[in-house]
Design a protein around this nucleic acid. Structure first.
Lengths: 189, 189
DNA sequence: GTCTATACGAAGATAGAC
DNA sequence: GTCTATCTTCGTATAGAC
């Protein structure tokens, strides 16, 4: 991997992106937050801010994907869902509803950079795959497993945005409850 | 209400926000896109960019809310859902996956302005109320109607983000299909 | 790998004329 | 209501020394 300060910059960018978004976060902020040296920005990221964003999305994407896979190892889909919802709930409450998903933050702003867009798309696809495999293992047909996995990711991401807007975890909890029903239906039907 | 050019600035801001986000859109862009005169910015929006954002969210929120209510007048919840999904699909395809939801765009970036956050929260609440009322009318219990309405809004908004990221309408279509099942279940159970 | 210095444009915002 | 001019800060990015 890269050096220490490069990795630290990526981690800081993820934290800042999820609160202020991509355009709302400058190199200045990333340097201050990470404690990395100013002069090393374009040494580590010759492609500038777009490269930092791409790497940040990849980092956050595989980090969250790893959470899902870890949860999926010792639990049925409903348990994975509950744990995943709990993870987001903790982030929302712990940040006083200031932090959301860094991948979503970048995805809604990246309209003109193909590499960034591709990275966000792959992150979502990763999470979906991980969730779909647990659904298949518990009896859902492959096609249904994929659709319900997409529903879960989409609904939770959407709920996180709504929670920040309404400064409440209610949307996330409501969505989690209804998604459990959908998971149950997919297993038997 | 307000003058002609003010209204035009708000409309342009909505179009630009949904592609580039809040921080990614400058007054410069809004002026150019709307054709409004430069000198009238702070006449119409004494509160500056934050005030423009708040009014833009309110405008987009009530515009989309009106779409839902209009659809709800002559259809059951499933028909409303299908039409709503079709509306987003058209926007995504028509913009080559560059445009998303302006309310979401602002919601993920507004971390420090209470008025903006409140406006995004009210927009989501409006949409949810409109959808929940159709669910109640078709047999769902009030509590379930509210939860399923939240699920629909959250899942569709999340799916729109995923569609942009993957440059495909598949997530939206998959989510729409599964949401129909959830609506059906809420009507009978 | 990291530094300083700096270029250059764009950002939001204000003042005062018309 | 709209104009121009201007202020200040900040943005990304580069050059060249160490």
């Amino acid at each position: 991997m890269g050096s220490e300060s490069k990795q630290q910059m990526v981690k800081s960018a993820a934290v800042l992106f999820r609160e202020r978004g991509y355009s709302g976060t400058g190199f200045r902020d990333v340097i201050e937050h990470s404690g990395a040296p100013r002069g090393s920005i374009y040494h580590h990221f010759p492609g500038g801010k777009a490269e930092l964003a791409t790497e940040t999305v990849r980092y956050a994407g595989s980090y969250i994907g790893a959470q899902i896979e870890r949860l999926a190892q010792d639990g049925d889909p409903a348990a994975v869902l509950r744990a995943f919802v709990g993870w987001w709930r903790k982030l929302l409450e712990g940040s006083d509803f200031r932090a959301g998903c860094p991948v979503v933050a970048v995805a809604v702003e990246a309209h003109d950079d193909d590499a960034i867009v591709a990275a966000t798309g792959e992150a979502f696809a990763d999470w979906e795959r991980a969730l779909a495999s647990t659904l298949r293992r518990s009896g859902a047909t492959p096609a249904r497993a994929r659709r319900v996995a997409t529903l879960c990711i989409a609904a939770i991401e959407g709920a996180v945005v709504m929670c920040r807007a309404q400064r409440s975890t209610q949307p996330l909890l409501d969505v989690g409850r209804e998604l459990e029903q959908a998971i149950e239906a997919a297993q038997s039907g």
